[in-house]
Structures are given as C-alpha cells and as structure tokens.
Design a protein around this nucleic acid. Structure first.
Lengths: 241, 241
DNA sequence: CGCACCGTTGATGCTGTTCAAGTCTTGTGG
DNA sequence: CCACAAGACTTGAACAGCATCAACGGTGCG
C-alpha cells in the first residue's frame, strides 16, 4: 500500500493530477533527478507555522492537515491535503500554517531553489501550479460559506460529501451504490475543520447515523447508502419536494 | 477622482500592483492594444453566479464584492475586490460567484482569448497572476479563521484592521496618527462578509464606538485613533498585560 | 492492571439570531 | 416648503443553537 521510496515518476499514483501532470517524458526525467521522498508517521508535524520550509512537495499518499492557531488556543483548519495536493509556496520560505500528518504520509519533495528554476524553465509546471492554486482558492471559498453560514448538521454533511466526491474522483469505476469512507480524521480534526467543538461533531454524526442518512462502522468508517440524501443535508440545494 | 476611460497604462494607479506589475514598456504596449475599460455604478451586478464571463479584468478603482448564495437565501461573501485585484479565471468561463459593485467601479478588461495568449507569451504576467492567486489564497485562509473561530466583536475588529492595512499600503506617507476609513460597505455587506446578521454588526460597531476603540463619523466613516488598540480586539495576538 | 486517548451523552449557560419596533436620512411629489 | 415614503441603521426582548462543563464507556498499550 505504501509506495516505495524510490518510485519512478512514470509509476507514480499522482502522476496525472499533481503539479507534474502536464510534463512529458523528458521533463519527468529532469524532475526525477532532483526529487526526493520523505515519510511522516500519523500525528507527526510536517511543518510548524512560522518555520522555514526548505522544500516544496506533493502529497503522494496519506492525508495531512493545514491549520492556524490563535494564541489563546483556538484552532481552525484551513486545508485538507490529499494525494496530489501541493505544499509550499514559490517565492516564500516561511509557511504561515501548521502542517500535520493525519495518517502516515509520503511526500515527493523538491528543494526550493531547483524547483524555482524548474518553474522558469518548464511552463507546464508553472501553468499546472496556477491551475491547482485556483482550484484551492475555489475550495477555500466554498469552505468560507460552510464556516460562515451553515449549521452544525450541514457542516458535517458538507465535509462527508466533499471527501466522498474527492475520493470518488480517484476511482475510475463509478460505484453504483454504497460509498464507503475510511476517513482518518479524529473527531477533534473534524471539529477543527468545521469550526465546531468535538461534542457537537459527535452529536451530529450520531444523529445522522440514528436517522439512517449515514451508517457507522466503528468510529472511523462511514458508509453512505444514498449520496443524494446526504447531499440534501448540506444546505446547498433547495430541498426537493 | 474617477479615472478617465482612455487611461494609458503608464499613468495607471494600479500599474505596479496588478497583474501587469512586472511588465516592461514593450509588454505594456501589447496590453494597451487589447485592453478596454468598463464602468459600473454602485449597486450594479458585474457578474451573476453561473453566468459566462467573456472577459477577465483588474479592478482599477472602487470596491466590488464576491459572494455565494444558498438557495434558501443565506449569503456569504468570499472576497472583497479592491483596486488591483483580478477578476476571472483563465481556463474557465463561468464564475461561481456573484460579483457586485459596492461603490462605482472601473475595470480594466481583456477578452478571454487574447488574455490567454498573453499568459503563454508573457511569463511575467503568468508569474504575477500566480503570485496574486497565492496571496488571495492566504487571504481566504485567514478569513476561514475569522469565520470559523472568532467572536462577533473580533470579526468586526478583524475587518476594520484588514481594510485599514490594505488602505495604508496604498499611501506612501506612513500616517503617524488617526486612520480614517471611508468604507463603502453597508451594514448588510459587512454582515455578509463576516458571517453575522446586520443587527449583530450594528451592535458590535456601536459598542466599539461607545468604548472609544473606534470613532463613528456618520454611518460610513470610521476613525481609528489607535490601531494597536483595535488590533488587540481581533483575537490574533495574546492580549498584552 | 491502570493509564491515556478517543468518543459519547447529558445538563446548563452564553452568544448571536430572530422578531419587532423605532430613529435618522434622503429623495420625491404636491 | 412640507408631507410622506423608502432605505439604512439602531435598539430591545425572547429564543435557539452551539459551547462549555462534567461524567462515563470503550480500546489499545506499557
């Protein structure tokens, strides 16, 4: 399951979605020369807010979280980093967010200087990075709506739907029925993402379970029998009559 | 005050901040050929969510808002567009947000096809656009913290500080004392931005005024006698003892 | 075993919403 | 010039949703 650390780009699971998506064979060869892998265990900090980040990276496998903390301890997650997502920002060395491995994580890293040279030489990479950044911006804005206007129940539903959607986009087979989510997020991580407390998250998940909109299989595994029914709980669409 | 509609790039107020910031004289000449201006009056819709946007543009003057609406009427603003900000996204024609002129607004527009050719030919423009998008992403994430974790009072303070900061970066003169904000936002617009109701916005502004942290000069003009004191209300820093 | 961590559930209280009434300002028409 | 209406804003009272505080159950591990 976990990728070998000497993976060749051509065999890489995120080959067609990450920042390198548009590169041809020759370009990949050049990436191959400068990339290196890093592994983090679940729970490990990848970067501390304010620290220098000497590299940029793509998430190859696992899930990481990006969060901001106020000095009195309040925490808000600002991004969920799934495979193919990019970490770091060209032209700036400090990251303003804590990045933490939520599960075991493998990163494909590039030292900063070589990467910035790549950006100049290979417009494919710069173009793809722009596209990915614009996607992230859209995602952040959608999440602003969740945080600013949705109820606790709608927030939970929105999270589950967005993870399910993203997960589904990885599978080619359009699964006709049950969607099984194995989300490696503690209640605490969810609450940090949703702008709620863990108690509220727990209550709303229990309630969705009791009502049959989702099915709980242990603490972390969730089965969605009817995605449309769950989607109706997100608040995004007027309820069908 | 309002710019002439036949403005030359060299004389443009956003010349050094907008997407064209890094262009040299020759490159500006090329932009000059394809750009055109549009004006919108306060209150006018610039784009409706879901509509095709046939151009991309920079805000030259005025303030516009970007908002998302749920079908039951809940609204969340996802961006405040100030002079030099960019509207539209290369590679996609529909905008997922309503964009509205909050004051009279002038845009410097480019038809989509020529602009996308520019992006390929002029890496300066693509690079600057990436940089601006990354800045927007940071701003969106900072706002997620506001929406997810801050109290009503902290949200108001955060809004005022961020507008003051942005305003200040336009003036060269580092104003030694009173900051005067002339923010052309109704209470409703503020509430949409802050994820609150207009009543709560009104109450908190009154309260900050009563306490002397800000001074109200009519409905829309706000004077900040001590920026640090206001900043202490944003929740961002531990309160100094 | 005993501890730590994660999650659930209940009781209570606070912050911000909702509903409602009223003020101030601005613009319009007689 | 005044009467009137409409929109922006303010203020008050009651309510609701989520947070807070607290107790407890399950699971994995030294």
């Amino acid at each position: 399951m976990t990728p070998r650390l000497d993976l060749r780009c051509a065999d890489c699971g995120i080959r067609h979605r990450a920042v390198c998506a548009r590169c041809d064979e020759t370009e990949l060869a050049r990436l191959e020369e400068v990339k290196f892998y890093r592994r983090y265990e679940a729970g490990q900090k990848i970067v501390w807010a304010g620290d220098d980040l000497s590299f940029v990276a793509s998430v190859v496998s696992g899930i990481a979280t990006m969060a901001q903390t106020l000095e009195d301890g309040r925490v808000q997650m600002v991004g969920l980093l799934l495979p193919s997502d990019f970490i770091g920002r060209p032209g700036r060395t400090v990251t303003p967010y804590d990045i933490t491995a939520a599960s075991d994580v493998t990163l494909c890293c590039f030292r900063r200087a070589p990467f910035e040279r790549l950006l100049v030489d290979m417009p494919h990479v710069a173009g793809r990075l722009l596209e990915m950044t614009l996607d992230e911006l859209d995602a952040a804005r959608e999440w602003m709506l969740v945080l600013g206007r949705k109820t606790a129940r709608e927030r939970i539903a929105s999270l589950l739907v967005s993870v399910a959607r993203r997960e589904a986009s990885f599978d080619l087979a359009p699964r006709s029925h049950d969607i099984r989510l194995d989300l490696p997020l503690t209640r605490e991580a969810m609450s940090e993402y949703l702008g709620l407390t863990i108690e509220t998250v727990s209550r709303q998940i229990s309630r969705l379970g009791r009502e049959g909109t989702i099915m709980l299989d242990g603490k972390r595994r969730i089965v969605i029998p009817d995605l449309d029914r769950l989607r109706a709980e997100t608040g995004d669409e007027a309820v069908a009559v």
